[in-house]
Each structure stands twice: as C-alpha cells, then as structure tokens.
Design a binder for these strands. Structure first.
Lengths: 316, 316
DNA sequence: GAAGATTGAAACCTCAATCTTT
DNA sequence: AAAGATTGAGGTTTCAATCTTC
C-alpha cells in the first residue's frame, strides 16, 4: 500500500511538466481558433459575455466579470457597446436599483447563432479526427483539470486555525445556520447544547479542542472539535460539531480539518473517536467513511442527542 | 459496422458543446493561475517567452512570435524589455545580419526558476487532488485536443483541386524532390517516367486524372492520380505518383486526396485499383492499408517500375 | 460604510507602415 | 523584391479612484 503511494507520487512529479506543456500547447491552439472573431463585429470578451448570458439567462455586470475572469471595468465598457448594439438589454423592474440585470436581446441571439455555428464547426472538425475513446478522454481530461484547478483555488483562500475567544459569535452563528438546514433544530439536537454560545471556553483544556476554517483573511466559514465522550470512558473521544457553510463545502477542506482534529485527539491520548450524525447528511457521512470511520448500529455514551440516527467510530 | 459509425457521429455531436464548455472553464481557471505573475516583475508574454527560450535554446524573434501566437510587433517590444533587464541575450556572430538569435541569460534563468517553482506548485496541488488514472486522463486529454486542433488548423490551409496545365512545373518539381528523399532515384523508378514533365497532358481524358493539394492560396505541396494499369485489363486502374512535400505530411490530407482519387477512378468505371510502392515508405503504406488496400506478394501488369518492392490492390 | 457600477491613466496587444539587410 | 525586425496609431485590459444606491 505504501509502495503504491510512493510510486503514485513519483508519477505525479513527472506528470506536472507534462500537463503544463500540454496545457500551454492547447491554449495556444485555442488562441488560433479565436482569430476569426475579428471579422464578426464582436470582440473576444463580448463573445464570451454573450455565451455566458445565454447559459445563465440573467446576470449582473459583477456576476459576468466573475464568470469571465475579467475586471469589472472591462466589463462595464464591454457591456456599454453590447447595449448600444442592442445585443443585450437591461431587464428593469428590479428592486435594488444598484443592480442592472442583463439578458440577451434578439440581435444578440442572432449573433450568438453565428458564433456557435462557427465554433461548433471548428471543434467538430478537430474532434472528428479522433476516435470515440479519444474524444471521451478529451472531454473528461479537460473537465477533470478544470475542476481540480477550481478546487485548488478555492482551497488556497481557506485556512485552518485553532478557535479564538473572539470566534464565539461566528461559530455559534454557523451552528445555528447549518443545523436547521438539515432539519436538525428540534430537541435532541446539538443546536440546543448550552455550549453553543461559549464554544471557546467549552473546548479549552488538554482533553478537548476546537478548530475553525477561515476564508479570505479571517471570516469563519466552518469548524470542528473533539472532547471526551460523555459516559464513554477515558479512552474514547467524540468528534463534535463539525459544520461548514455551503460556500465552504466541496472544497476538500472538510477532509483536511477532520484529519487535523483526529490527529490532535490522538495526541491528547484518546484511542477511539466516536461521532453522531444524521443519515441525510450524506456528504458528511461519505467523508467519515472515507477516512476510516465504521458505522455502528447503536449509539455509544450518553450525549443526549437522541435526534441523531447514525453513529460511527474509528480507532486512532 | 455502419450502425457503429452512425452512433459514433451522434455521440460526436453531443460532445462538441461538452468540449467547448469544458475548455472554456479550463481556460478560465488557467487565467486565475496567471494572476500572480503581476507580482514577479515579468509580464505574461515575457514569462512565456522565457519558457519557450528555455525549451528551444536559441530562437529568433519571428520564431518566438509564431510559438507564442503573438504579433511580431508585440514580441519586438517584449524582447526590448527582456534585453534591457538582461533576462535574455543576443547571440551574435550569426551570418545573416537580419536575424537576432536569442538565448536565455543568467538572470533570465534565475527568474525562470522562480516561475517554474510557483507554476509547478500550483499544478502539483491541483493534480494531487486526482487519482493516478484521472491524472493520466488529464495529460492525454489535453495533448490529444491540442494535437487535433493543430491538425485541423494545418488542414484548413490546404485544399484539393484537379491539376491544371500551369501546375506542370510544380508537380514535376515535387516528384523530383520527394523520390530521391527515399532513395528512389535510380532506374526502375517512376521518377524516370517520361510523363513527369507533362503530367497534365499525361492524365487528361476520361480514363485518368491527376489532383493536387495546394497550401495557402495556390502553392502546390502534393498530388496523386490514377490511370489504366499498363497490361492490366480494362477493369484495373493504377494509383499513380502520390507524393507530398514534408510540410504537407501528417495533416490528414493524404487520406482525403486518396479517397477522392479512388472515388473518381470508380466513377470512371474501374473495378479494382492497384499500386506500387516501397517497403520503406511506411507512412504511405499505413495509409493504403487503412483505407482497405490489401498487400500482394507480387506485382500486377507491366509498369516497368522494377525498383518497387511492395504492391497493393483494392476493390472499388 | 458597503455593494454595484463607472471613469481616467497606464500597460499590453494588434494592424499597418517603415526600416534594414539580403 | 523579400525576409527579419522596428515604430506609430488605435483597440483592449487592468488598477485605482470615483460615483450612485442601499
């Protein structure tokens, strides 16, 4: 197993330059495809803006600049021309007068048809040189790389650190936001624990700890901690109150945080980690299972969280 | 078989938008990767120029602008700054004083190290989120798409048309250039046929035809024709004098030309097509085999080309 | 004060015209 | 005249400052 992992890593190192080389070449060839745009009356950015508008229906200038990875000022000017040419229209009547929701206009749709016709022809011509299996490799390879890059980017804005006293309000807010999202707001759920408002104090000492995930500077977007399991003996700890705001999910940060908490629990002398959750929290349960938690058929200890219906444990 | 082909095509049509979507997203994510460049003193183009210089050793401004798909004027200015910063140096002593061969200088190498360190880290972080199989898919997918786009681009500059009388000198030149390349310039080879100088006249009439491949306007870069096989009966024709300049090889144009010639031969009433070639022309032989030609163990007819050592035939 | 959008200055890129060497 | 490289004018993009609305 370890052998495989090592081999896997060596492979990875040799693949990095290969991927960089291939992506440079691909981008260069895509650049050639874009040359024709000069002759069709819209600029490169205008063309992409139209495509995204078609795809999303209604967008504001800010959303468009995020999607296209262009400065908002560029978009402002780009849109000005598109509006003058009547390719897009402002869908008025919005409540917030700061926003300008944009949609495709008739002429924009027509222009877009021409663009798609050309672009599809080009891509079709290229793909038709490949076999079916090769084409599948292309689709999957591009999508996988895009997704991996996106997740890396999301992760690089996130960081993990021990909770501070000043985080108390933020952490309480997250718990009180996330649990109702899964219908876990009645009696018998952790949301009613008295500790929710004083998480920092509740997880101090060397037998417990709470960690938060922050985004872009120091905004708290998630957290998790550990402490002795009530009525579970001195060798058993509980993974407690692991919650993420939606914006921080699917970034791979949950796994990082979980592994950190487990490591700290092991260092604190615990031999086993127990946790309670809900069947319907499927994303979380998949994560628990993937790091080695095993499903139990009944609860351990006496947490008082009789609202939970799914229990796991793992040797540390 | 036909069923498969149809299914194959339907798949292709649904894959075109998928590839376009994936490639847009990928390019967008790559754009985010490039943002950091702002802080390192070199511009985006300068960075890529350094990478290409490292890869190729010595390059002129023109070669660089081709490689980076940038206008030569952009490169002129870009290089001016790189030279001032002593990142690159002109390797003097060339014979042609119009050229300025460029190489990396010491400071450029150092800068490049920093660039690679950062870029490798980023790509490494992204790839490490993927499994070994997924990473292979990424490498292969990017490379396949880049290659397919490049071939499409090369093909779009090429065209096929029937030979004109005015092509006589060009066609003769190609035949006399390509055959010696494969050592086929002694007696017993088609290069000595009297028709070489008057190809247009030799392939007129409704039982023969010669077609040329042109590049960028009307420069002839290859050709092929058919005519009755000497001593082969009235149902058998010969595929004759199919030659491509090196620049036109590997573009998929050979297949197109071959299929066209075979179709015209069939329309002219021939039932079988025969051809003679050399064992060492492996690329050509693979093409013949891939369109259905079957290897014979001895020649047909009486062409007089006793220099050939490989014979094929195909039902039309 | 903050979110959404616009404007001015400067950097970067392309097209076309020009210069230099062959 | 043609190949290689440079310069001038104008379009596109970004950064920073500003305006408007909440």
């Amino acid at each position: 197993m370890k052998q495989t992992a090592k081999h896997d890593l060596r492979e990875l190192h040799s693949e990095v330059p290969a991927v960089r080389q291939a992506s440079r070449q691909m981008v260069r060839e895509l650049g050639f495809l874009d040359h024709w745009i000069g002759g069709c009356g819209v600029s490169h950015s205008q063309c992409h803006a139209l495509i995204e508008l078609e795809h999303h229906g209604v967008l504001t200038a800010g959303e468009l600049s995020d999607l296209l990875n262009l400065d908002k000022s560029t978009l402002s000017r780009t849109l000005k021309e598109l509006l003058e040419a009547e390719y897009v229209a402002v869908r008025g009547g919005g409540e917030d007068k700061r926003k300008k929701p944009l949609t495709l206009a008739k002429k924009g749709l027509k222009q877009l048809d021409r663009i798609h016709a050309y672009a599809n022809d080009q891509v079709h011509a290229a793909l038709s040189l490949l076999s079916e299996a090769e084409r599948r490799t292309v689709v999957e390879g591009l999508a996988l790389y895009a997704k991996a890059l996106a997740r890396t980017r999301a992760q690089s804005e996130l960081a993990i650190r021990p909770m501070l006293r000043s985080d108390n309000p933020d952490v309480a807010r997250i718990i009180r936001t996330v649990m109702p999202e899964f219908g876990a707001n009645g009696p018998g759920f952790a949301i009613n624990d008295p500790e929710v408002g004083q998480m920092f104090e509740s997880y101090s000492g060397d037998q417990a700890g709470y960690f938060v995930v922050t985004r872009g500077g120091d905004r708290v977007v998630g957290g998790a901690g550990f402490g002795p399991l009530a009525g579970g003996g001195k060798d058993v700890c509980e993974l407690r109150k692991m919650y993420f705001l939606p914006e921080a999910r699917g970034t791979g940060m949950g796994r990082k945080l979980l592994l950190l908490v487990l490591e700290r629990a092991r260092e604190a002398g615990f031999k086993t980690c127990y946790l309670e959750t809900l069947e319907k929290m499927t994303q979380a349960r998949r994560l628990y299972e993937s790091v080695g938690f095993e499903k139990l058929c009944k609860p351990l200890g006496a947490t008082g969280h009789f609202g939970c219906d799914s229990w796991y444990a793992k040797k540390l």
